[in-house]
Amino acid sequence: MKRCAISDTRRGFIIKSASIAALYLTPSILVKAYATESVIPLPIPKEKLQLTINGKLFNLEVDARTSLLNLLREEIGYTGTKKGCEMGQCGACIVHVNGKRTNSCLSLAVTNEKLSVTTIEGLANGEALHPMQEAFLKNDSFQCGYCTPGQIMSAVTCVREGKAKTKASIKNYMDSNICRCGAYQNIVDAIYEVAQSGKKI
């Protein structure tokens, strides 16, 4: 199976993607500690990428340096997934990749070849809200709403993975997601309510 046009071998791909990741995903505060570069980097050719987002198949050509987060927000226009730190520290960018929660800011877009991504926009069934979205509304589990998509995506896997049996286990699981408005208590209430309802989500 040809993974990517960037190199002929899987090993070559891993090496190259790892070095791109090292360069572009390292917190800028660390990168800037090094001296300025003297060589102008060569233009980066676009890579082919096929992936499914919210059930829709996309055949794309993307910059190999683009994170999944920036692909969603800047290229495709799925801005429901939020950018909060680009260092995997806040959880605002969490999406599901093949059902697993993933910090999309730490995932290079090209590493998602043939994978299936679900964002907040793909959670509701048309106009019918997902039970977790309904519970967030009812429990007032957000204020500014910016961390909310990430919280909801994490909340869904929290229940699916069986980590929502007690409020304490919900809190531990959800420590991945920062809410600066401080809606935590209402978020935990919403998740607990959905878990207790026994609804298959």
Partner: peptide, 21 residues
């Protein structure tokens, strides 16, 4: 009652400043 802008925010439809193209 629910927040009047709630559905926009929980579905990811609410647009924040950087999200205009």
């Amino acid at each position: 009652e629910e927040r009047v802008d709630g559905i926009e925010k929980i579905t990811g439809r609410a647009k924040y400043s950087a999200e205009h193209s």
